Amino acid sequence: MELRQLQYFVQVARMQHVTKAAEELHVAQSAVSRQIHRLEEELGVRLFMQRGRNVQLTPVGQLFLKRAESVLADLDRAVTEIHEFLDPEVGEIRLGFPHSLGIQLVPKVVAAFRKLHPNVKFKFRQGMYPSLIRDVTEAEVDLAFISPYPDKSDHVTGEIILTEELFAILPANHRLAMEDSIKLSELKDDQFVLFSQGYSLRPIVWDACKEAGFTPKIGFEGEETDTIRGLVAAGMGVSLLPEIAMYQTSAMMPAVVKISEPHVTRSIALIRRSGEKMPMVVQMFHSFLIDFFNGEYKDK
C-alpha cells in the first residue's frame, strides 16, 4: 500500500468525483483511477460505487476513510513537528476561541506574540463551547480559549487564565442607564436579549438572574456579541456582557452599568489535549500566554 494511494483515495472520497479529484491533485484522471483500483485489489474490497457521474463510498469505504484520514493527518503533523523542531520560529499555531474573545483579546495577544516571533503563522477557528472541546480533542486545533473550564474531561487539560466581570447593558433611555451600579433584581421586569442555546454566556446570565430571584424573560436571542449589543442599543431589551466585549464602539452603543448584586463573573481557560506533548512553537506560544495573563491581566 502506497502513500499516494491513500492520498488519492481520500481526495476522491471528499470530492465524490474522480475527475474533480484528479484536477485538485494535478494528476491525470487515469492515474487516480488506476491507484484506486490497485488499492481495492490489495484490500480485497470495493471502496466506491458509481452514482451517475459521481462516486459514493461503500460502507467499508466509509470505515477505511476514517483510518486513512487519521494516517495522513498524523503524517502531516510529523512533518510539521520536524520542521518546527529545526526552527520553531517558522511554525504554525492553530488556535480556537469563542466569538466574544475575537473582538479584542485574541487580536491583542496574537499581535503581541508576533512582535517577538514575526514568522510564526496562525490558523484560527471560532466556535461554541462544545465545538471547541471537540476541536481540541480531535486535534483540529492546538490550543483553545474556552469558558468555563471543562472540569470533567478526560481528553483536555489546561488552566484558568482570566476571570472577568459581567456588566449590565441597557438601552440609553432605560430608567437605570445613568446609575453607577444596580442590583440585577432591578431588571426582573425587563425583557432580556440572550445568547442562543450552546453559548457559554447564556447559562451564566441565566444562573445570575435565578440567584437574583427571578427567571429572565427572553425577548430576543443572538449568536454574536455584536448582535446582542446592537439589539440592546436599539431598545430591544437588556443583557449582561463581559467587560472585554465593550471595547468596540459604534454609532449605536448601549449604556454599561456595574452590577453590585450578585457579583457576576466568567472564567476563561486555555486548554490543550491531555497526555500529548505540544509542538515547540505551540509550547512557546503557551508559555507566552501564561506570562501575558499573569502580567498584564493579573490585577484586572
Rank of each mutant, 00 (worst) to 15 (best):
G91P: 13
E138D: 10
V136Y: 12
G275I: 04
P279A: 10
V79E: 14
A168W: 03
E159T: 15
V205L: 14
E165V: 13
E243W: 05
M1D: 11
G44T: 12
F97S: 12
H26G: 03
L194A: 03
L105G: 01
E84P: 06
V10I: 09
M49E: 15
F145I: 01
L86S: 07
F293E: 02
A208M: 12
K115Q: 13
P216N: 00
L39D: 07
R134N: 11
S260Q: 13
S30R: 14
F9E: 10
P98T: 09
S287C: 02
A111P: 00
V55E: 02
Q197K: 07
L43R: 15
R46M: 06
K188E: 03
Q29C: 00
L289T: 09
A168D: 05
S181P: 01
T249M: 08
F192C: 01
L39S: 08
L241N: 06
L101W: 05
S100Q: 09
P279H: 09
G96H: 11
S267T: 11
V264G: 09
E138C: 01
G52T: 05
E84I: 05
L6A: 11
V55D: 02
M246T: 14
D142Q: 05
S70D: 09
L289I: 14
A168N: 04
E81Y: 06
K183H: 13
F214P: 06
R38K: 15
V205F: 07
L143S: 10
L176G: 04
L241R: 11
K298Q: 10
Y129G: 03
S260W: 03
G222N: 02
V156I: 15
E164T: 11
P242D: 03
G52L: 04
H174Q: 06
K115W: 02
G44H: 14
E221H: 01
E138A: 03
A245S: 15
F167Q: 08
L231R: 08
V106N: 02
E69Q: 10
P88D: 10
V110L: 10
V232L: 01
